[in-house]
Design a protein around this nucleic acid. Structure first.
Lengths: 124, 124
DNA sequence: TTGTTAGAATACTATATAGTTATATAAACT
DNA sequence: AGTTTATATAACTATATAGTATTCTAACAA
């Protein structure tokens, strides 16, 4: 019997949280979001992604590796070029949830400002 | 008229991606996920969260500030203590989406291993 | 007032990582 | 074979940040 049975605060072994944190970490950089944003429209090779995003070649290559290892992108060599494409569209669900919420908040703040601003047109 | 009208690659001004990246960044650390995990069951004060997570006081305080500024937690001082609670439960949607997907992947890999392993019990 | 306690803020260290430069690999073509 | 082109890798720098030790502030009690 486990010793902390009296009042289990569920000490939450954080190891189980690490994969989740790592996943969010992949999505937490502008450059990688740029790449994903590009690839929404379909597969692109590295040069094309580089042009579209303005990222340096080596830097881009590293980001693509990260995204591929996170199984967000898939890697398809075609001759001398390498095409990348979205492997798991769930990321767009995540991004949309966040975007929508951020938008809602901004709107709420605008509303509040309008209602409370000292120089507002006094809700005529 | 914008100059790049001929073939608009939508150069994606990355400024619009920054708030999204920042939001994911808040969720990309184990300690902060631990805190959120604790608070699923309801409001707690800082000392309680500290006990439950094992995080140091100053460190915890910083994380709580980040989570509050991201409008994920709300802060309620009560006398000398300060209670924090989930303000935006959307984070749990996000975490669940990610968790479920990671679980699916692990299962798929296990399946694949079972089918392809050289020493498998040959699907008797 | 003084003391105590809870939490926040500051200063610092150590680590991780984004970006860059330079080099390596590997495919296609001469 | 050698040459060019596309991508990857290695080495390095600079910045960001998690964690910690310390100090500060504010609420309550004696």
């Amino acid at each position: 019997m486990p010793k902390n049975s009296s009042r289990d605060k569920t000490p939450k072994p954080p190891e189980y949280l690490a994969p989740v944190a790592d996943y969010f970490k992949v999505l937490s950089e502008i450059s990688r979001l740029q790449i994903l944003s590009c690839l929404r429209e379909g597969a692109m090779n590295v040069s094309e992604i580089g042009e579209a995003t303005g990222l340096g070649q080596a830097n881009l290559s590293k980001h693509l590796k990260m995204l591929t290892e996170a199984e967000i992108l898939s890697r398809k060599p075609q001759g001398v070029a390498v095409y990348y494409e979205i492997q798991d569209p769930m990321i767009f669900e995540l991004c949309e949830l966040v975007c929508d919420r951020l938008y809602q908040r901004m709107q709420q703040k605008a509303e509040k400002f309008k209602r409370l601003s000292a120089f507002s047109p006094s809700a005529k």
